Simulated assay, not measured.
Amino acid sequence: MPPTNLSVATPDFFLMGFPGLEAYYAWLSVPFLVMYCVAVVGNIIILCVVKLEESLHTPMFSFLCVLALIDLGLCTSTIPKMLQMFWLQANVISFQACFVQMFVIHFLSSLESSTLAVMAYDRYVAIYNPLRYTTILTNAYIIKIVAVLFMRGFILIGVLPVLASRLPFCSSTVISHCFCDHMAVVKLACTDITLDSYYGLAIALFIIGTDLFFIIFTYLMIMRAVLKLASKTARLKAFNTCGSHLFVILYFYTTMLFSFITFRFGQSVPAHVHATFTVLYLLVPPMLNPVIYGVRTKEIREAIIKVVINLFH
């Protein structure tokens, strides 16, 4: 009796990109390339400055470095492939690469959400317990927080591509997106996807829900403390700082939730609109975070000037 071949061929996927805008790809590539370069350069500058300047070796800037690393990974996991699509019409992505990209994007998105929540807690401690700030947020405590958040995202998000990669893809392998989003890939399966859909929904609600609730609660407490400040100048400075942080946070969650909801319930939303919003939540925050959390911070500005002066002497 001849041996039976049990291996199943895994298909390559075709990324549609921005349906209907193919004629404008050359023009679209320019702003995406510029934003990507700004994001990469900005986050690398933050990492280098914090590394070189010992006065910045504090909990606040440690979390900022974690955010910078996440942002570098988040935009690099999508934009280079998109630029290949714009310039070389390289829309095909292998089966394995698709699920690796899926994991990286969703894992880093969850980690960014968690890091924003921890940074809000950092500001809360700095305002409510300024004298005990460094004793509460010790290096060991920071490492534990980052490790817990890393493991939470790695385990919960890691199940998504594992489940999705086991689905049979019988006919269409055209992903109506510019990267391997979980639901965009799962919808191509020729079988029941209830488990994958519900698990993705549950994980998103758990991670985003808990982080967003914690951020809102923390900033309400911060605002309460700021209103008690005696100096009007100090209140305005605090509101200006918190307002900038909240703008980035609201943008990140608004665009993320828009993408999440429209994939499940917004069938009437044009594909190119959905794709644009999704990419912007992966690209704009990595570009804005170094400015909002870094350059607008006095210590970072002074450290950058100091490093530049040292380079020319």
Rank of each mutant, 00 (worst) to 15 (best):
A230W: 03
V248K: 00
I215N: 12
V38N: 07
V104C: 07
L149H: 15
T138L: 05
T115D: 08
D192Q: 07
Y281H: 13
Y198M: 08
P290T: 09
K237I: 04
F263T: 00
A234S: 13
F18A: 00
P270W: 06
C37N: 02
F252T: 15
T218L: 07
M183S: 08
A9S: 12
A202L: 11
G73Y: 10
H274G: 10
K81W: 00
I175Q: 07
D122F: 07
T276Y: 01
Y124F: 15
K306Q: 12
L283D: 07
R301F: 11
T276N: 00
S259W: 06
W27F: 12
L137H: 08
P59N: 06
T297Q: 13
S7E: 14
F18S: 06
F252G: 02
D211R: 10
Q84R: 13
T135I: 06
I305V: 12
L52S: 08
E53P: 11
F169A: 04
P59V: 05
H106D: 05
K298W: 11
L116P: 01
M1I: 07
F169I: 02
P19Q: 10
Y36D: 09
H106S: 10
Y124W: 15
G42F: 02
F277E: 08
R166W: 03
L108N: 10
S109Y: 13
Y253H: 12
V248L: 15
S62F: 14
A126E: 06
A271N: 08
C75F: 02
V148N: 04
M223C: 08
I304P: 06
V118E: 12
S176T: 07
S113N: 10
L229P: 09
D196M: 10
Y124L: 15
F213H: 06
T262Y: 13
F265V: 06
L156D: 05
G158M: 04
S172L: 09
P11S: 03
S171K: 09
V148E: 00
M16Y: 04
L108S: 09
P19T: 04
A202Q: 05
L74G: 03
T10L: 10
P161S: 08
V125W: 12
V186F: 03
F260P: 01
I145Q: 09
M287A: 15
A238S: 12
G73V: 05
V174F: 08
Y198T: 01
H245A: 09
L56Y: 07
G266F: 07
I261H: 06
I207T: 07
V100Q: 13
G158P: 04
Y25W: 05
Y133A: 03
N5K: 03
F13W: 09
S165P: 03
C65H: 01
N289D: 11
V226K: 01
V174G: 01
E53Y: 07
L236K: 11
L288K: 00
A39I: 00
F99V: 00
L21I: 05
I222Q: 01
V273R: 03
C37R: 04
S110R: 03
T138Q: 06
F239I: 11
L131Y: 10
Y199T: 08
I208F: 15
L250M: 13
V40Q: 14
I208W: 13
W27I: 12
I145M: 04
L283E: 06
K144V: 09
I309K: 14
A189M: 05
A140Q: 10
P59R: 01
L227K: 13
I203V: 15
K228N: 08
